[in-house]
């Protein structure tokens, strides 16, 4: 997913000379071809995320489109003020391409895991938040991002994520429905790479559909309302802390629209930063939010 997105940014840069890429001391060899063929559009700055965000704002204010890239929390947490004031408040044409969404960097601990990004950017109500599930969705999003001249944050998955969206119409701002059963009573609302887990859960249960919000903000409320009013049970599954993420936003929308499901469950990463190190899947197991635990729990609670 990461490489697909970067390659798409390079394709955009070839096509549109106003596209720039700024990285913050990324891995050696990142986008070498881009750097060699379009050196005026490629910047690899030092470990200085706050500076890079404001520099991108300066470029955008003069009519350029800028993609900035490093590990997600070094933008979302460290450079939040620069994002809020120089990008968001100024409505600059900058895409924040955040590596290591959720627990991708689980082995590296709380400094590197991005588990509060939705909450931080939900506070900035018009920031577009994208969390694609696979490389296919990422490719579509990057292509569309060029034409959306507003601040966008993209949360990346690890890479190698199973492709599950290839037969879907992918549009920024639109939720994607996966119908699994004609008589489904449950629906899982999810985002990012939890989609693959949600589909696995839905396959095991006979009565469960899935609604994928790869655009976390603005939330596709129309789809949420239309779909969720039909189900008895709404389950939210997200790779994010309990508060301020997709679940919080969905509860807000349901309440506002007077939709009361008979049951509501919210699977998330809990209230605190996760000091336990481990691979993404191992931490899902540790927190008992991997499909096998959720399937067992839902079946046992019938």
């Amino acid at each position: 997913m990461r490489k697909t997105g970067l390659n798409q940014i390079y394709e955009l840069a070839k096509k549109y000379s106003n596209v720039n890429f700024i990285g913050s001391d990324l891995g050696p060899g990142t986008l070498d071809e881009f750097r060699n063929t379009l050196p005026n559009q490629f910047f690899m700055e030092g470990i200085s995320e706050a500076h890079i965000v404001s520099m991108a704002s300066g470029l955008s204010s003069e009519g350029f489109k800028v993609y900035i890239n490093t590990i997600s929390p070094f933008f979302t947490r460290r450079a939040f003020e620069q994002i809020a004031l120089d990008i968001y408040s100024e409505n600059e044409d900058v895409v924040i391409y955040g590596n290591g969404g959720g627990l991708v960097y689980g082995p590296l601990g709380p400094s590197h895991t991005s588990v509060d990004d939705f909450a931080l950017f939900h506070a900035l109500g018009n920031m577009i938040i994208l969390a694609p599930a696979d490389a296919n969705e990422m490719e579509q999003f990057i292509q569309q991002s060029y034409h959306i001249k507003k601040p966008i944050y993209i949360r990346l998955g690890k890479g190698g994520d199973k492709i599950v969206t290839s037969d879907k119409d992918i549009q920024v701002g639109k939720a994607i429905k996966f119908n699994k059963s004609e008589n489904a009573k449950k629906i899982i609302c999810t985002t990012g790479i939890m989609l693959q887990r949600a589909l696995e859960i839905s396959d095991s249960l006979n009565d469960c559909d899935v609604l994928h919000f790869s655009t976390v903000q603005p939330l596709d409320e129309e789809s949420l309302i239309e779909n969720c009013s039909k189900y008895e049970e709404i389950i939210v599954l997200e790779e994010h802390l309990q508060d301020g993420g997709l679940g919080t936003r969905i509860i807000q929308s349901l309440f506002k629209n007077s939709i009361q499901p008979r049951k509501f469950r919210h699977y998330n990463l809990g209230k605190n930063y996760i000091h336990t190190c481990g691979r993404q899947e191992e931490i899902f197991d540790y927190l008992k939010i991997s499909p096998k635990y959720i399937i067992d729990e839902i079946k046992s609670l019938k």
Binding site: H51, S54, M55, A56, E62
Partner: peptide, 15 residues
């Protein structure tokens, strides 16, 4: 907020 202008100016100078 202080400490933003120099970086924004760099973006503009490059532009």
């Amino acid at each position: 907020s202080l400490g933003h202008g120099f970086s924004v100016a760099i973006g503009k100078a490059i532009a």
